[in-house]
Nucleic acid binder design. Structure first.
Lengths: 142, 142
DNA sequence: GCTTGACCTAGAGTGCACTCTAACACTTAG
DNA sequence: CTAAGTGTTAGAGTGCACTCTAGGTCAAGC
């Protein structure tokens, strides 16, 4: 597989794949006769896993560290497991932090709803629409 | 309240507060006789709300837009509510995305656990420790 | 034979959100 | 009176993660 193909497959840009190789996230690719990078499927799954790590908020430098451990062989299994367990914890904390923002947003949204209602009532009063019966909209009219 | 005090109160740096003013996240502060910024408590709660917006992943430019709407007055209530509702949706999506990474991490962690177990067993076999009874550690010994 | 398109390199540029520097002004405690 | 501390400005610098440019090579189809 050539680099453009891998890019299409993974959703990364060709530029990004070369950049990942340069910083050590990908092993130096083998080359064809013309010097072009040749990839196998295992690189696609490695990139997919990297995308998952990225989705956890892991930074490039940690991902490089993980890639180095992986390259060192099976005796780094424990170190890698510990990195992933640490990630688990940060993901859980991130979820908590995001969840904590929801009530804040909710409260403000309701505050604005009240503001809008008051604004409408004020307008109604100002133009004396209080005696004009409100039109009830029920169901959909296309 | 002077800027250093506000910084301590909100956990932001003095630099950041001035930067926020420059880009329009904070109204231009009133100054004392010596030209120093003077703040009231309402700025502290505004900054706290901005921190919540930041925690939702909102970028600076959107926060500036929100601040501008706020400065324009109550007739922008609807626009502001819509911004916050959009935020709600992105927060929910972010939570989902993070939750989706958890099984991936779990799987890999278990994979490494198995790898570690296999590694230990291999080592035991190599050094023929199979007949040496394992020491059971129960409770704590300081 | 020539054009097209995919690939190559080194290195420069981008956008975000700060973060810091230099050089100076003012206030307050000892 | 002076030193420490806090404030001021314009503008430069930082770190991250790409993203793009210039100038080239190479293979395949017409």
């Amino acid at each position: 597989m050539k680099i453009g193909n891998l890019a299409r497959l993974t959703g990364l840009s060709v530029h990004t794949i070369r950049y990942y190789e340069k910083i050590g996230l990908l092993p130096d690719a083998s080359r064809d006769a013309g010097g072009r990078r040749q990839y196998g499927m295992e690189i696609a799954s490695w990139l997919t896993f990297l995308k998952h790590l990225k989705a956890t908020g892991m930074g490039i430098s940690d991902m490089v560290r993980y890639a180095q451990l992986r390259a060192e062989g099976p005796h780094t299994a424990t170190a890698r497991r510990e990195m992933l367990e640490a990630r688990q914890q940060t993901v859980l904390r991130q979820i908590e932090d995001l969840q904590a923002t929801l009530p804040v947003l909710d409260q403000k949204i309701n505050f604005y709803r009240d503001m809008e209602k008051a604004h409408v009532m004020e307008a109604e009063h100002a133009t004396d629409t209080s005696k004009i019966p409100r039109i009830r909209q029920s169901g959909k009219r296309p």
